[in-house]
Amino acid sequence: MTTTLSILLIIAAMYMVLGNVFSILFLWKGLDKVDPGTKDSGIIFKLLLYPGMTIFWPFFLTKWKFDS
């Protein structure tokens, strides 16, 4: 049980680390390409999106890639 949980926690941690890296890049460069309504949005708005982006980053990675 301990080993299984350790592996799951490591996977979750890796997912979150990748999510954090992606979120910084995406909110900096890709946000307005995926949603034009966010053009010229401020830093506070992007900070508000940051936590959710670390969860749903695969979805936005796909959209960003597709829209590009």
Partner: peptide, 14 residues
């Protein structure tokens, strides 16, 4: 998850 997606941005994009 709910708090992080409470903004209108998430309503539109999800």
């Amino acid at each position: 998850v709910m708090a992080a997606t409470s903004h209108d941005f998430w309503l539109k994009n999800l």
